[in-house]
Design a protein around this nucleic acid. Sequence first.
DNA 1: CGTCCACGTCTAC
DNA 2: TAGACCTGGACGG
Length: 311
Amino acid sequence: MPEGPELHLASLYVNKMCNGVVFTGAVRKSEVSKNPDVPFICEAYRITATSRGKEVRLTLTPMKSDDPKQRVKAGQADQPMDIVFRFGMSGYFRFTTEDELPKHAHLCFFSKEKPCRVLSFVDVRRFGSWQPSGVWQPGRGPCIMFEYKNFSLQILSHLSDRAFDRPICEVLLNQKYFNGIGNYLRAEILFRLNIPPFVPARKVLEGLESEDLCDDEKPVKNDTNTKVKEARPETSFITEESGDLLRLCHTVPLEVVNLGGKGYDPEKADYSEFEAWLQCYYVDGMKSIRDHNGRTMWFKGDPGPMAPKGT
DNA sequence: CGTCCACGTCTAC
DNA sequence: TAGACCTGGACGG
């Protein structure tokens, strides 16, 4: 399931399915999971979700109890608990009846109905993780979809960070700055702007500061008639490109959310719509090479100057 | 049967 | 800059 759009769709799914549902008892972890136990027990509680980049936070909220003393005696929660999830390569949430519990359900929340239903965190490969009483992981940047302003500012104010020495396609996977971008999104975003994936990130993001390059352009534009076609005359085309890049880091993921399906999830029936949406990632005729971290980069045309050598 | 590949982090040499 | 962490689907012999 899991880049920013899928995580957000997961939070929408939880809120929709669990709206009005009362949960009860303990939270159950699978035998095989190495993630922490969730020490939350409550006679009656509700579940809501929110997402930020590549994380989802569930909030378990105890309902008013008739008998607080009894509740405390039984060791039951009276305060809400947040659980922060990362989905690894295969995490998602499902709300099912107990007998339809998916294989690889690793954390289960039981409803009070009879027969009861179960909200479960399903994760085939178990690369996903959760943190009880958790907070958004420190070091992850603002959400590309829902904290766009902070996301942009964070990047533009840290361009001297050595992280931006790397090729743009690799920096796009750096969650410190691009919280929510994953392997298919980086391909789709760079493809739309025709940016070679292995161009140094800072070059793309800060633009051509060097005066000589700007000066080179000026006379050319001044020579052509006064009606300049581009909106931004000599503020280098790369600056415009970088504005586009940050904007597409926001809008492209939102397109996936607005498809209304499940996003990247080949197991699902509505996967075809997502597949049709892809313009580059895994698309016939596109090129692909392994980046310096061994992840497959899909692109068209020039790979750029920092492309891995050899092989 | 086997090998390769997959939407992502992590930590260890 | 490797690997480790996992399961399972696609595809080759």
